[in-house]
Simulated assay, not measured.
Amino acid sequence: MPAQSNIARPYAQALFELAQEQKDLAGWAERLQLLAVVASDKTLINLARDPRISSAQLAELIVDVCSDKLNDGGKNLVKLLVRNGRVNAMGDIAQAYVVLKAEAEKVVAANMITAAPINESQQKQFAEALQSRLGRSVNLEFEVDEELIGGAVIRAGDWVVDGSVKAQLEQLVGALSA
Rank of each mutant, 00 (worst) to 15 (best):
D41Y: 11
M112D: 05
I149Y: 04
F126E: 07
L44V: 15
A89K: 05
Q168W: 05
R136G: 04
D50P: 00
E21G: 09
V78P: 07
G174F: 01
R155T: 09
V82M: 03
I113F: 11
A152S: 14
A96G: 07
L58P: 09
M90I: 04
R52C: 12
G135C: 13
V99D: 07
D145A: 11
S137L: 10
Q131M: 09
A178W: 08
N88H: 11
A94F: 01
L77Q: 06
D92R: 02
G151Q: 06
L44R: 08
E17G: 09
R52E: 15
D24M: 03
I45Y: 10
E17S: 13
S5Y: 12
L35R: 05
S164E: 03
A109L: 07
V78G: 04
G27F: 05
R136L: 05
Y11H: 09
D41F: 09
E105Y: 01
Q123F: 05
V138S: 00
I45N: 09
A39F: 11
A19M: 03
A109Y: 02
V99P: 00
D158V: 07
A110P: 01
E146D: 15
E21K: 12
S121V: 13
S5P: 02
E128G: 15
A48L: 10
V78S: 07
V37E: 10
R136P: 03
Q33M: 11
L100M: 10
P117D: 15
T114Y: 04
L18M: 12
A167W: 05
V108Y: 02
I149P: 01
L44D: 14
L134H: 06
V37R: 13
E141V: 07
Y11M: 08
N6P: 01
V138L: 00
A94Q: 01
E120R: 10
I118S: 13
V65F: 00
W28R: 03
L70G: 12
L176T: 10
R31G: 04
R133Q: 14
Q122I: 11
A89S: 12
V144G: 08
R49Y: 12
I7K: 02
Q122E: 13
Y97K: 06
A104N: 08
L44I: 15
A127Y: 10
E21P: 06
D64I: 11
N71L: 03
L134S: 09
Q20V: 14
A3S: 14
V38I: 15
G73P: 03
V144P: 06
F16S: 01
L169Y: 13
K106Y: 05
E103I: 04
Q131A: 11
V144E: 08
E146R: 15
P117F: 11
A12K: 01
V161K: 00
A110Y: 00
A12F: 05
S137R: 14
V108F: 00
T43M: 06
L15V: 11
